[in-house]
Structures are given as structure tokens and as C-alpha cells.
Amino acid sequence: MTIVLFLLILIGSLSALTAVETRRIEQRYPPDGTRVEIGGGAIRVLERPAEGEERGAILLIHGASGNAADLFVAVSARLSRAGFRVLSFDRPGHGWSDRFGGRDAASPVVQAEALRRAAQKLGVARAVVVVHSLGGLAGLAMALHHPDFVRALVLIAPVSHPWPGGVAWYYTLGAHPWLGPPFCRLVAPPAVRLRMRAAVAGVFAPNRPPRDFIEFTRLPLLLRPLHFRANCEDVAYAAAAVAALSPGYGAIRAPTEIVTGDSDGVVYAHIHSEGLARDIPGARLTTLAGVGHAPHHVAPDRVVGIILAAEQRAAEREAAFATASGVNDLTA
């Protein structure tokens, strides 16, 4: 009886602590930007308008354990100065986006559809799609299932192909239908908080994270139980997702640029980035020396240059198509 009482007190204390911490985090990082209702839920977007005459839209999709602020703080100002409207989305269940889609919520196809619909509600009919890490799966799904929306595709340190081994045990546990909810509420928040700085250092290694990276990217939002569980589900589902998507990469026709670091310790560049360069027709791979898993923060000017090169390739293809169509009209 004493042990049972102790366990009940412990569970109640941890649950109350998580609830208090969740409220504190949400007060510190409120839902700025815009929440776009798309039916069944809302997607949060951070937006930066183009400086001067607008040249088009660029859509940013973050990876695992993050939110829209990650790519936004790294590259949006540079892209805006280059004349582009920049929209950075929280994937469903992350940041301030709702988790919807039922049991398929972790599917990159479902997430790609939700983000595309949100962009279209904001008046974006076509965009250059820029993705990082696990967000690469949503970008690849978008290019496969909505080719008319994706003008060009830029994949930064992407996840894309089957890899040896599984994922860390805590992702599998957090995604478990019965054990996941109590784990994400009682155990994960304090444990992840204690390891957050070390985890960030591991992502950036061998580079150093920018000063105040955790604050600027609002990373503590991940500590909320529902956000953490969505993240676990996405990571745990990734193996099934790459198995389903990767056989179709040869059908992608959007101009594609891939950028990776040669010192990435999070994903296998020789499997994912090199695999995409092999499988996607016309894809170009740039490998940055001495760079880890966060090229957009470590080498933002190089990454922005690659994004602009992708957009230029798209513009040239569109011009060539328009010319060919005009010639065909004249000779019809």
C-alpha cells in the first residue's frame, strides 16, 4: 500500500509539474504569426514579405524536434531582401499547428497536403519549397503529389531513404499508443529539458550553435507533451515513410538542389543526400566541408545562394516552356 501511495503521489506531482511548465512555456512563446484554418485544424505560419518587387514565394518546412522559427530565423531575412515572400510553417502537431489527420497524422503525404492548403489559403499558388532534415519527407511528398505547386525543391540535410538500424528508443516509446501519453507527460519533459543543450550541440557538431539558438528558435515548445508526442510519432513513422516514398523519386520533375555537410552526425549523407542526387533527375548536390546537420545556420549565405539557384533554374524552365508553347500556338 505504501508503494502504491508513493507512486500515485509521484505521478500526480510529475503531472502537475508538467502542466505548470507547459503553461509557462506557452506564455513565454505565444503563437505569433498567423494560424490558418484549413478544415479539421489550423496551421501556424511565420511570414516575411518581399522587400521591393516580389519575385515569388518561398515555403520553409522544418525538421524534427523544432518548429517554424528554425528556418525562419536562419534564412528569411536574406530571402526577403532578394525579393521573395517567405512563409515558414509549423508542421502539424509542432509549434502552434494543430495535429490532425487521425492515425495518419505522421504521414508526410498528409502533412504536405495540409501545408499546401494553408499556403493556398494565403494566396500562394506555387512556391519554391525548402526543407530541412525530417521535413524533407513532407517536401518530397509535396513534389510527388502536388507537382504543379512545387516550382523548385531545396533539401537541406534531408531524410529520404531507408537506413540501417532504427530510431532512438524514446521516439518509439513516445509514439506507442498506450505507453506514449504517460511517457510524454511524466518523463519526457524534465528529461529533455536537462539534455536540450547537449542535444543541440550534437546536431550542430562539429560546429557551434549560434548564441541564444534555443531562445531564438523557441525550442522549449517541444517540451509540451502533445508537441513531444507528435515529434515522436513523426520520427517513429519515418522508416515506413521513406520505404513508401523513395521508389517514386524518379518522377520528381521540379528543379532540385540538395545541400549537406560532410560532417553530419545525425543523418547519413551518403544514403540520403547522395541517394536523392542519384534518384531525382537533374538534382544537384552541394557538400559543405566541415559542416554538420545545420547548414542553414552555419553557412546561411551558401544555403541562400543554393535556394536562389533553384529558383533561377525554375524561372528558366518556365521561360523555356512559355517560349515553346508560343511557338506551338503559332504553328498550330
Rank of each mutant, 00 (worst) to 15 (best):
M142D: 00
G40V: 03
E51K: 15
V109E: 05
A143F: 01
G33Y: 08
G83Y: 14
I38T: 01
L46N: 06
G56I: 10
V129W: 04
A77D: 15
L115A: 04
A57S: 14
H62Y: 07
W96T: 06
S80K: 14
V45F: 13
E51Y: 14
L60K: 09
A106I: 02
G135Q: 00
H62E: 06
L122D: 13
D70G: 09
L79P: 12
V75Y: 12
A64Q: 06
P92H: 00
M142A: 02
G41A: 02
G136I: 00
D98W: 01
S97A: 07
R81K: 15
V109N: 02
D32K: 10
F72W: 09
V73Q: 12
P31A: 10
V73W: 12
G41T: 02
A77L: 14
A57V: 11
R81D: 15
G101L: 02
G33A: 08
V124M: 10
R48K: 15
E113W: 05
L71S: 07
A141F: 03
L59M: 11
A141G: 01
A50Q: 13
N67G: 11
R117Y: 01
A125V: 07
P92D: 01
F89A: 08
D104I: 02
L122T: 12
I43N: 03
E113N: 04
P49A: 15
L60H: 07
G83D: 13
A114R: 00
L140S: 00
G33W: 08
S88T: 07
F89W: 07
R85I: 13
P92Q: 00
A119D: 06
S97I: 04
A114Y: 02
V109R: 00
E113F: 04
G40Q: 05
V131S: 05
G95L: 09
A141K: 00
L59P: 05
A143T: 03
V86G: 11
P49M: 15
R126L: 04
L144Q: 03
P108G: 02
A42Y: 07
A57G: 11
V124F: 11
A64W: 04
A141N: 01
A68P: 09
A57E: 11
D98Y: 05
E54T: 15
A119L: 07
S107E: 03
R78I: 12
G66I: 05
G95F: 08
L46A: 07
E51P: 14
D70F: 09
G83F: 13
I58D: 09
V86C: 11
